[in-house]
Write a protein that binds this DNA or RNA. Structure first.
Lengths: 152, 152
DNA sequence: ACCTTGGATGTTATTTTATATCCTCTCTAG
DNA sequence: CTAGAGAGGATATAAAATAACATCCAAGGT
């Protein structure tokens, strides 16, 4: 089992289900299982890592099973994709529509989500200045986290 | 041949070669060909698109041929990877060490590189505040470019 | 209750992206 | 002249993602 977090996994699953329902979408058993696996993980998971874990409870799972669930969860803004890792992780805060900003530690592989309003707004404005209509922004910063840095 | 740009392709290749030499690296014929193909393209190219084009002048080219050249060019900061597209494009400005910031138009597929100091610094500080030692930052904004927006 | 219809999932196959491994060639520093 | 490193050749395979079609099932209208 993973480290302690702000809220329990069942509580987060339930509020995710409510958020989906509010938009007329259904957090089905499969989607709930996939989200639960991600919430239970200490770090980002690739689609195939997720598939391996999912198979423990759902033998018939194959890549499309996982990718469809991931697509749904991303549409519902319940998870993010970390592009540099081809991996996925839950949003830090369910339902709240924020741009994705990550700090990726190359030593330990952990990824922290941050939320920097200044940067987000600067990017929004920069896009506007070009007449560009932004839909979704991703920020990914590679480096070394505090813990790994001090260890070295 | 692609649209007109600030500087001629040969001039950009030569300054790239100089930048490499200054760091004790060699812009070999293969690497030069790959960079030339990218400079000659109107938009980002995937590794396999590049491979197809490269084969016109180098029949023996296979995936590792291209990926090795791409790795080298990225190390030398001559090109960027656009993570959301699994594609590559030249740096807007050779040699100058800037964070990668892209506007990706989902209609026309064009990618514009921007350079927003405010956002870059905000992110740097946000990382520092967490004790995170940033190495390289990527910003990718999906949306619709001005041209495509007005067409619609 | 009975359709029917669209969303969700099952199933098979394939495409796209990227890397591992080992070998050969060619410089160049000693 | 030769050892060693870096570049590239060659083969194979791994990893990530999607296409296409079949089936199931749940919700709403009648």
């Amino acid at each position: 089992m993973a480290a302690t977090r702000q809220r329990s996994i069942p509580a987060r699953l339930d509020s995710a289900a409510k958020a989906c329902a509010a938009r007329g979408a259904r957090l089905t058993e499969l989607r709930r299982q996939v989200l639960a696996l991600m919430l239970d993980s200490d770090g980002p998971l690739t689609a195939y890592q997720l598939l391996d874990r999912l198979r423990e409870m759902r033998e018939r799972a194959v890549p499309p099973t996982v990718y469809r669930a991931l697509d749904f969860l991303m549409e519902q803004r319940l998870i993010h994709k970390v592009e540099r890792l081809n991996a996925f992780m839950p949003c830090s805060d369910t339902g709240h529509d924020h741009p994705a900003q990550f700090l990726i530690c190359r030593q330990c592989g952990r990824v922290a989500e941050i939320e920097d309003r200044v940067a987000a707004e600067a990017l929004e404005h920069a896009a506007e200045r070009q007449g560009f209509h932004a839909r979704s922004a991703v920020v990914e910063i590679d480096g070394t986290c505090a813990a790994c840095f001090h260890r070295a």
